[in-house]
C-alpha cells in the first residue's frame, strides 16, 4: 500500500489549516506557499475535503477554508478513508481464490487492516498538530 499524492497533500492541507485555526479562513494561496505545494492541486483536494465534511469554505475577500469541526473531532482514519477511497491491504477475493490465498487474506491482510484502523481511528487531527501522540510508537 502506498499513500497517494491526494492523501499526503490532503493531510498536509488539513494540518496546516488546523495549526492556523485562530487566524480565520485560510486562503489556499497561503497554504500553497507555506507547504510548497501546487495551489491548483490543493483546490481539488480542498473540494473533496469540503464535500467530505472536514472543511468549510468562506467566500469573498478574506475568504478561504476553515475546519468544519473541531480538530479533536476529526479522526485521521476518516480523512484517509475519504482521500484514499479505502485504506486497506486486503483486496476483494477473485472468483478463483484458492485455499492459500484465502488464508493469507483472512489471517494476514484482514487483520493487518484492523490493526491499522485501530491506530488511526484513535488519532485525531488535534493530536497530530500537537504531536503529543508521538510517544505511542513502540
Amino acid at each position: 500500500m502506498k499513500i497517494s499524492t491526494r492523501g499526503r497533500y490532503g493531510l498536509r492541507l488539513l494540518v496546516d489549516i488546523a495549526e492556523h485555526a485562530n487566524e480565520g479562513p485560510i486562503a489556499l494561496t497561503v497554504v500553497a506557499k507555506r507547504q510548497n505545494l501546487s495551489e491548483k492541486y490543493l483546490q481539488q483536494v480542498a473540494l473533496l475535503l469540503t464535500r467530505g465534511g472536514f472543511l468549510t469554505s468562506v467566500k469573498g475577500s478574506g475568504g478561504g477554508y476553515l475546519l468544519e469541526r473541531k480538530s479533536e473531532e476529526i479522526m485521521i482514519y476518516d480523512v484517509l478513508d475519504l482521500l484514499e477511497g479505502n485504506i486497506a491491504f486486503e483486496e476483494p477475493p477473485g472468483s478463483e481464490e484458492n485455499a492459500i490465498e484465502r488464508v493469507i487474506r483472512l489471517h494476514f491482510y484482514q487483520k493487518l487492516d484492523q490493526e491499522v484502523k485501530k491506530v488511526f481511528e484513535g488519532l485525531s487531527l488535534c493530536e497530530v498538530t500537537k504531536a503529543q501522540w508521538f510517544t505511542y510508537v513502540i
Binding site: L11, V15, E19, I76, I100, Y136, V137
Partner: peptide, 29 residues
C-alpha cells in the same frame, strides 16, 4: 507533522507483520 503519521503507519505494519509467522498461516490452511 504528517511525516509522523506515515512513520506511525509504517511501524504499525512492520510490527504486525513481524508477529505473524508463515507456520501460523500454514496451520490455518
Amino acid at each position: 507533522k504528517t511525516h509522523q503519521i506515515w512513520s506511525l503507519l509504517q511501524s504499525a505494519v512492520v510490527d504486525f507483520s513481524s508477529q505473524v509467522t508463515i507456520l501460523e498461516l500454514a496451520s490455518h490452511l
